[in-house]
Design a binder for these strands. Structure first.
Length: 576
RNA sequence: GCGCUCGUAACUCAGUUGGUAGAGUACGAAACUUUUAAUUUCGGAGUCGUGAGUUCGAAUCUCACCGGGCGCACCA
């Protein structure tokens, strides 16, 4: 076995693995292990007065998380899918005959924190009062040769938590093992989508799947990821939204469709943005945006109750209350409320002046809608902590939304803002094909001016709504954002299992083959690299005597047990 | 992309005006048959992110680079 580059603890564990093998123990057995209970079930069902029969013969499996060895008796904590339970091992129970190897050697010396074992025994309560399993027999199910971070806890206080975000995100498996609150946030993410899904299914809407690889990207304003299909010899984009496909299904006669969609946007990353993220989009025929607002309130309130049993959710220092009805502002009302300025009757020039007075950064390319949006973003959005609907947006920013039924220049659109961030976006969908074509054409003008996020004209989509799309309400709700709020998470990385990270750069291009080409054995070539000789040039300049010493030192220090090279040999390498 | 900040043992962290790299846990050896952050004794463990520079001497000061976090910009 090649131990170069391993830490002391990793070497010790590999040695333990070898020793298990020489004892005839397969550390990675193939057979099913007949688990009949989880840790939590034992703790829940334990009854001192009336012990359930099945707790007298339990079989469970999991990971060893702590060990307290006291001579011929030991305690360990076993962590399984549902929690932890203390195990009690006694030498003479594990080893009923004369041979005490299973306890003295296998359990005490060759097992480690992190190993996965199965145990059979019975539930009991210790003198200290802790419900435990008295182990009669254990089986090694998987030897861990990589040490886990050690997290200790007493009276609810966590000591030495594994907390470095970089390590946690790069090594999520480890994070999930040692940080139970991380696991619980992800369980809540799934409970959230389950709750939303059953809400929508109960209403009779159909969950569907639409293309992720799209020849034209649309449905939102964002820069896409671009890829290529070889057989078709065609550019394809990863979707930035699925809106245009779901609407085609509405045209096709499905009156309610939804999709939990992974979308991809090639833009900045921060604690609210990951390049791939999840949106739930829903389209319901014959409804409008007022109806959709009611649905969003009802759905999110229900999710909160399903997850927390309450409409109130703790988020950092704040309490968010999802109880219906939520506050509703038109965008103009919101701006008036937070700036004191009524912009509803201003001309573009007057608006521009007000924006300057408010010190909102604007430039000449911005139209009226964009300026209003900038003012809203600067003065209103971050103030909206409790869930709030903002309605009636300027038409320029919303090429897929229907014109407002009574106010010129606006569309029937709303967003829900919560904790200063958008959590959903919805419209009365534009179903007038002539209007829709004109709006796309306006987008093309923007694109020609260099707006990278202007929408493309999607002829197939237009053809579909030309057939006739019923009046429809549409919704996109950010699942990651909503999960952050519902799980009290400060970063999107805490609700996505494997957030995007920059690749770790290797320390150097580790390639010992250049030394092997000089006739140096592979092991020694690797050691040369580890010792800092990373090029043939460095090797050529080395002092043969010193290098010989270094290599022999490595061998001894790391207990590699290799035959040391002779000084002559080393000199030959250097001079070859 | 910009600004601030961080990177030391497997994990969490100290490390003073620049002077032989430390602690707790973990790991190894020993004791201990109901402990629970077990305890007691002893021991080993490090490319101080990487590379240059200043210096007799750098974990420490300077610069560049790599990676992370936070903020800004971008992302309606």
């Amino acid at each position: 076995m090649d131990y170069i580059g391993l830490s002391e603890q990793e070497i010790i564990r590999r040695e333990a693995l070898k020793e298990l093998q020489t004892l005839g123990i397969n550390a990675y057995p193939a057979a099913e292990y007949p688990v009949n209970i989880f840790s939590k079930d034992i703790l829940d069902r334990f009854d001192d007065n009336n012990m359930p029969e099945h707790l007298l013969n339990v079989c469970l499996a999991g990971r060893i998380m702590t060990r307290r060895i006291m001579g011929n008796a030991s305690f360990a904590e076993l962590q399984d899918n549902k929690g932890r339970i203390q195990l009690y091992f006694r030498r003479d129970d594990i080893c009923t005959g004369e041979d005490k190897t299973m306890y003295n050697t296998v359990f005490k010396r060759l097992l480690d924190i992190g190993d996965i074992i199965g145990v059979k025994g019975y539930a009991f309560r210790t003198q200290m009062g802790e419900i435990s399993v008295h182990v009669k027999e254990f089986t090694v199910l998987s030897k861990s040769i990589h040490p886990l971070p050690i997290v200790k806890e007493k009276d609810g206080v966590i000591y030495d938590a594994f907390s470095d975000p970089e390590q946690r995100y790069r090594n999520r498996s480890m994070d999930l093992i040692v940080n139970p609150q991380v696991k619980s946030a992800f369980i809540n993410r799934t409970r959230l989508t389950n709750s939303m899904r059953s809400f929508l299914n109960e209403k009779g809407y159909l969950e569907v799947e639409t293309p992720i690889l799209q020849p034209l990207y649309g449905g939102a304003a964002a820069r896409p990821f671009k890829t290529h299909h070889n057989t078709l010899n065609q550019t394809l984009y990863l979707r930035i939204a699925n809106e245009l496909y779901l609407k085609r299904l509405i045209v096709g006669g499905f009156d309610g469709v939804y999709e939990f969609a992974k979308d991809f946007r090639n833009e900045g990353m921060d604690r609210f943005h990951n390049p791939e993220f999840t949106q739930m989009e829903l389209y319901v025929a014959y409804k409008d945006y007022n109806w959709m607002m009611n649905l969003v309130e009802e759905m999110v309130e229900r999710i909160s109750i399903d997850l927390h049993g309450d409409t109130k959710v703790q988020l950092g220092e704040k309490i968010i209350d999802f109880k219906r009805p939520w506050k509703r502002y038109t965008m103009y009302e919101a701006i008036q409320n937070f700036t004191g300025i009524d912009i509803s009757n201003l001309s573009e020039n007057e608006l521009r002046q007000e924006a300057r007075n408010l010190k909102v950064e604007i430039d000449d390319s911005m139209g009226k809608g964009k300026i209003i949006d900038e003012i809203f973003g600067a003065y209103c959005e971050k103030e909206l902590i409790q869930p709030t609907f903002i309605t009636d947006y300027p038409i320029e920013m919303s090429p897929l939304a229907k014109k407002h039924r009574s106010v010129d220049g606006l569309v029937e659109r709303f967003e829900a803002i919560c904790n200063g961030k958008e959590i959903c976006n919805a419209y009365s969908e534009l179903n007038d094909p002539i209007d829709q074509r004109e709006r796309f054409e306006q987008q093309l003008v923007l694109a020609k001016r260099g707006d990278e996020e202007a929408m493309m004209l999607d002829e197939d989509f237009l053809k579909a709504i030309e057939i006739g799309m019923p009046p429809t309400a549409g919704l996109g709700i950010g699942i990651d954002r909503l999960t952050m709020i519902m799980t009290n998470s400060a970063s999107i990385q805490d609700v996505i299992f494997f957030p995007q990270m920059r690749p770790e750069k290797k320390a150097e291009t580790f390639d010992e083959s250049v030394f092997m080409e000089l006739g140096i054995e592979e092991v020694w070539a690797k050691i040369l690299f580890k010792a800092g000789y990373t090029s043939v040039k460095m090797l050529k300049e080395a002092n043969p005597g010193k290098l010989h010493q270094i290599l022999c030192g490595w061998n001894k220090k790391n207990k590699l047990g290799l035959q040391n090279p002779t000084p002559d040999q080393v000199a030959v390498w250097i001079n070859s």
